[in-house]
Structures are given as C-alpha cells and as structure tokens.
Computed example of a mutant assay.
Amino acid sequence: MDYSYRITKYRYLTFGGTLRSPATEWTSFSEIDQEDDDRTREYLAIEGEYISLAIYLCNSFGASSLKVQGLENSKPIENDICEGQSFTIAQVPKLIASILREEFWCRLIGDGIEFHFGYDYYMYFVSDRDASEFILNSKTKLFTQEFLSPYMID
C-alpha cells in the first residue's frame, strides 16, 4: 500500500512535530468516568468522529466489508470476534467503537484499504490510492497527516 495517514483527536504539535495532548486530556477509554456526563458526551462525540470518518473512507473507496487481521483479544469470552472474520460496513461502527474502547485490538483490512489502531487514539488509514482529497472533503474534526503506520505488514 502506497499511502498512509495518521488520524487523531490531538492538535498540539511539539517542536519535533509529534502530536500530543494536554496533561488534562483523556487518552484512554478507561479514563472516562461514566458518571461525568460532560466527559462522556465529549468521548462519544470524538468516538463518533473516528467511526464516521472510517465509514466515509470505506464508502469513498468502495469497500463493502472489512476483515479482522492480527487479532489480540483480551476478553475472548465477551468478544465474539475471530481472526479473519469479515464484517459488513454496517457492522463496522460497533467494531471500531470496541477497538477504541480497548476491548480488543486488530487491523481492519478491506479491498485496497486498511485501518490500524494505535495507543492513545491514533487511527491509521492505509490505502493503495491517495486519500488526501477524500479526507479534506470529509469535514472531520480529527487531525490527519501523512504518516507511515507502525502496524504495516509487508
């Protein structure tokens, strides 16, 4: 795959060009206090941004399904997800929400596209075609930059 993008909720760049969050910002679902309505709403809005952008990119690239690859499932009894399992695009929102909530980890692989998920709310979109115009037209609130996914497999 020739094109790789890092997508994140973070907007602050260090002098070295690394994206980072302020010390008070949450970086894990485990930091969301379900009793804090404002923080929960903020989390759900940001989670929705990731999901919406992923679905938009799937539709833009004509993907009809995504397959699980590299599954790391810390809760196998609770998560009925299997290596190589395919999901329709309609099923993908729940899948991505579960990955972002750290219920399991995997790459999602489609025809000419891939989604990889890093720690601290980094999502990588990898494709065989330039996606910069699609991303620009997506109107996402997430920050996107060309960046080689550390989860690429040769």
Rank of each mutant, 00 (worst) to 15 (best):
Gln91Thr: 14
Asn137Phe: 05
Asp36Lys: 03
Arg129Thr: 12
Gly84Phe: 07
Phe143His: 09
Phe87Asn: 00
Ile153Phe: 09
Leu142Ser: 06
Leu71Asn: 00
Gln85Lys: 14
Lys9Pro: 01
Phe125Pro: 00
Trp105Ser: 11
Val92Asn: 06
Gly84Tyr: 08
Gly110Asp: 08
Leu53His: 04
Tyr56Asn: 06
Glu35Thr: 14
Ile81Asp: 02
Val68Gln: 01
Ser127Ile: 15
Asp80Ala: 13
Asp37Trp: 03
Ile81Phe: 03
Glu42Leu: 14
Asp80Gly: 10
Asp80Asn: 12
Thr14Arg: 04
Ile46Cys: 05
Ser28Cys: 11
Thr140Trp: 12
Asp2Pro: 13
Pro22Ile: 00
Ser64Met: 07
Ala54Lys: 07
Asp154Pro: 13
Gln145Glu: 13
Ser52Glu: 13
Glu47Ala: 13
Asn73Gly: 12
Asn73Asp: 14
Thr24Pro: 01
His116Ser: 13
Glu83His: 09
Gly17Asn: 09
Arg129Asn: 11
Phe29Ala: 15
Asp111His: 10
Asp2Gln: 11
Arg6Trp: 02
Asn137Ser: 14
Tyr43Thr: 06
Arg11Met: 08
Trp26Gln: 05
Leu108Phe: 10
Leu108Asn: 03
Phe147Ile: 00
Lys67Trp: 10
Arg41Leu: 10
Ser138Glu: 11
Phe15Tyr: 04
Ile135Arg: 00
Glu42Ile: 12
Arg129Glu: 07
Asp37Gln: 09
Glu42Lys: 02
Glu31Ser: 11
Leu66Lys: 00
Gly17Pro: 04
Thr8Glu: 01
Ala54Tyr: 04
Leu95Gln: 04
Cys58Phe: 03
Phe125Lys: 05
Glu42Ala: 09
Ile96Asp: 04
Thr40Ile: 06
Lys67Glu: 09
Asn59Ser: 12
Phe125Cys: 10
Glu133Asn: 10
Phe115Leu: 00
Tyr56Trp: 08
Lys67Val: 10
Cys82Val: 15
Phe61Lys: 13
Pro22Met: 01
Ile7Met: 00
Arg101Val: 09
Trp26Asp: 02
Arg39Glu: 09
Glu78Val: 15
Gly84Ser: 12
Ile113Phe: 01
Tyr5Ser: 02
Ile153Lys: 09
Ser21Glu: 01
Leu53Glu: 02
Ala23Ser: 09
Asn73Gln: 07
Glu42Arg: 06
Phe134Cys: 13
Gly16Arg: 11
Tyr5Leu: 09
Ile46Pro: 02
Glu72Asp: 11
Gly110Phe: 07
Glu49Lys: 13
Asn73Trp: 08
Tyr12His: 05
Cys106Lys: 01
Tyr122Gln: 06
Met1Glu: 07
Thr40Val: 11
Gln34Lys: 08
Ser98His: 12
Thr88Leu: 03
Phe147Asn: 07
Ile153Trp: 05
Ile99Lys: 00
Tyr10Asn: 03
Gln91Pro: 15
Glu133Ala: 15
Asn59His: 05
Leu66Val: 03
Ser21Tyr: 04
Met152Thr: 07
Asp154Arg: 10
Ala131Gly: 08
Thr24Asp: 08
Asp37Cys: 06
Lys139Tyr: 15
Ser127Leu: 10
Gly84Lys: 10
Asn59Leu: 11
Trp105Gly: 00
